[in-house]
Amino acid sequence: MRPVLSVKGLTKRFGAVVAADNICIDIPAGQKISLIGANGAGKTTFVNMVTGYVKPDDGRIELDGAPIVMRSPRNVAKLGISRSFQIPQLFIELTAVENLMVAVSGASGAQLSAVSPAGDKGRRDCAMALLDRFGLADAADRRVSELAGGVRKLVDVAMALARRPKLLLLDEPTSGVSAEEKFITMDRVIHAVAGLPTTIVFVEHDMDIVNKYADRVVAFYNGRILADGAPAAVLQEPDVRRYVTGSTR
């Protein structure tokens, strides 16, 4: 079966720094994959290249067999790849449901006035259905500026899911979330995606989250893939323990 995402020989340099060094990875539909690695290992650069925010110096990126390397982030999103951000990218002056209405419509920030009115019943119904999938219906009419950090995270992921992408890339979905709420947050994400034709790839530093939710782990180090496989196997690799998790046991 053809992978939903195929990356071959992906390379990116920023001056003397090699942020991606011949990255090769195939991602089949339906897997939940976690990208791990220390800060600067190349995880976010990889995500940025896949989503069109950074152009690679070399290599191929294919979505369902079609090349997407030279496409803009907006075009990549239209083709079926969405992402959330480590710091939620939301319109803080709007309510949660209005943010989702923007995402459902596919509008840009310059088009907000055309899609934000609560009277647009069709978009509002779709936005409310998304919020309900994440257990956020009670926060629908609250301004984003009033929401707790964990709720903002979920609204950001809901916006990424609004177009029902083939591939959903999450950049540290539990960062900034309290220890008591991190599993609740991730449970809501997994529940929201269940039943949709969407494959999840998430960047994560919390190994408890990785162990519980990932089917597969890809460990990055110095712009290269250090290990790739089942969580139990990858997290026991000596080099992963030395360079990624910091465990010496």
Rank of each mutant, 00 (worst) to 15 (best):
R216K: 13
V177R: 07
I209E: 01
L226Y: 08
A227Q: 09
A158Q: 02
R152T: 00
G223A: 14
M159T: 06
D215M: 10
A194V: 11
M186A: 10
N211V: 13
R163N: 11
V177D: 00
V151P: 03
M159Y: 06
A194M: 12
D206T: 07
K153Q: 07
T199M: 14
K182P: 02
F202G: 04
P197M: 04
D187Q: 11
K182G: 01
N222H: 10
K153R: 09
V189R: 05
R216T: 06
G223T: 12
H191K: 10
R216Q: 08
T174R: 00
A192I: 09
P197D: 14
I184S: 14
A158F: 01
Y213I: 01
A192N: 05
I209T: 13
K212T: 05
A227C: 11
D215I: 01
P197C: 04
V177M: 04
F220V: 15
A227I: 15
E181N: 14
L167Y: 12
D171C: 07
D208A: 11
E180R: 15
T198P: 08
I209N: 12
A158W: 00
A227H: 13
T198V: 07
F220E: 11
V189Q: 11
V157D: 00
H191D: 14
F183H: 15
T198G: 09
E172P: 09
P173I: 01
T198M: 11
M159S: 05
R164I: 07
R216V: 00
G195S: 14
L154M: 08
V193K: 03
R188N: 11
I225M: 08
Y221H: 15
A227D: 14
N211C: 14
N211W: 12
I209L: 08
S175M: 06
G176L: 02
G150N: 01
E181V: 00
I225F: 02
R188F: 09
L168Y: 01
A194I: 08
V217Y: 08
V203E: 04
G195Q: 12
N222R: 15
G195L: 14
D206Q: 09
V193G: 01
Y221S: 13
A214T: 03
V151Q: 08
G195W: 15
I190M: 15
P173D: 05
V151F: 06
N222M: 15
D156H: 06
V189A: 05
K212N: 09
R164E: 10
I200E: 11
R164F: 11
N211R: 15
N211I: 13
R216N: 09
G150C: 02
P165E: 02
A179N: 12
R163G: 07
H205G: 03
G150R: 07
N222Q: 15
F220M: 14
T174K: 00
H191G: 02
P173N: 06
L168D: 06
N211Y: 14
L169K: 05
R164A: 12
M186C: 10
V210G: 12
V189Y: 05
D206C: 03
A162T: 04
H191A: 13
K212E: 03
T199P: 13
I184E: 15
A194Y: 10
Y213F: 13
I200V: 14
V218N: 04
A227G: 13
M159H: 01
A219E: 12
K166Q: 12
V201P: 11
D206A: 07
G195I: 15
L161H: 01
G223M: 13
A194W: 03
R216M: 09
M207R: 14
